[in-house]
Design a protein around this nucleic acid. Sequence first.
DNA 1: GTCAAGTTTAGAATTATTTTAATCTGATGT
DNA 2: ACATCAGATTAAAATAATTCTAAACTTGAC
Lengths: 159, 159
Amino acid sequence: MTRTSNTPSDIAPSDDAAPAAEGRPFSQILDRLRGAGLRPTRQRMALAKLLFDGGDRHLTAEMLHADAQSANVRVSLATVYNTLHQFHRAGLLREIVVDSQRTYFDTNMSDHHHFYFDETGELSDIPGDQVEVAALPPVPDGMAVSRVDVVVRVRPADA
Amino acid sequence: MTRTSNTPSDIAPSDDAAPAAEGRPFSQILDRLRGAGLRPTRQRMALAKLLFDGGDRHLTAEMLHADAQSANVRVSLATVYNTLHQFHRAGLLREIVVDSQRTYFDTNMSDHHHFYFDETGELSDIPGDQVEVAALPPVPDGMAVSRVDVVVRVRPADA
DNA sequence: GTCAAGTTTAGAATTATTTTAATCTGATGT
DNA sequence: ACATCAGATTAAAATAATTCTAAACTTGAC
């Protein structure tokens, strides 16, 4: 029960000046990590907060690392990579590949698809109910569909 | 729109009934390259032959390079990369990204989609008519759809 | 507090791909 | 045929994203 260094786990919510849009941000994230069997370390907590506190996001490891720096969270890039992969394996993030060269992680785990902007390399969500895959082919023997990804590539309509 | 629906050539191709014995493989490929505005060099001809002579294929630069070696065609890896990109720009190949880490090129230019085998990282074609995307979302303003990619990820059904 | 197992980290290593700079080749003109 | 030169090829170096390594540090249990 010793308070070893700064464990954010059970700090009093009262001294948190941030507007608590969702009750207690830390305990929620803590539960998420615990539920995923991941030890809630300082850096994992901080990254999880950055990832899941701001709505749906598509980001690369470099982007999250930059985010962390801006937020004065000191984590190495290697940890960002590790953490993203752990979160992905734990089902907290979705990995999207649209562009060899950058791997995106998507915090939106609901059923949905993506627009990909060829020019900028950016991604945006398409709600699941706006795309309908009406027919699917017979799956090879002994195989099961793990996911169907639809990417709508767009580019500026020519003037 | 304006899909360049496979222009085999416009010169009189006597008759290429495609028997095992290659009729005039070179002139066909030569025309393809000329039609694409690419100078028919020895290595481009050889690579095109490897690419387009054997039905639909999904391959990476490394794979094609290995293929070339086996066929006793001496090309550098850099040339393989250059050539694949040129063919892609010229509309002779399709680039598929399903796995950051390897970029595949697909010799099948017809409208179709893909199975992706999560375990092996392999790809296979799904004929266009076996997948139907029934609904598409409104495209962002000023943008036009350049392509819709559907990737059906499969893995072994659990025992 | 002690300890072991799990984490983090800086920096080295790896992999796929691109660039560089030199050299070669194919198309064109004569 | 021969010279010419833009475009093509190449080996080698450079780059970018990501992973690995080994040491140092945390966490959770006792």
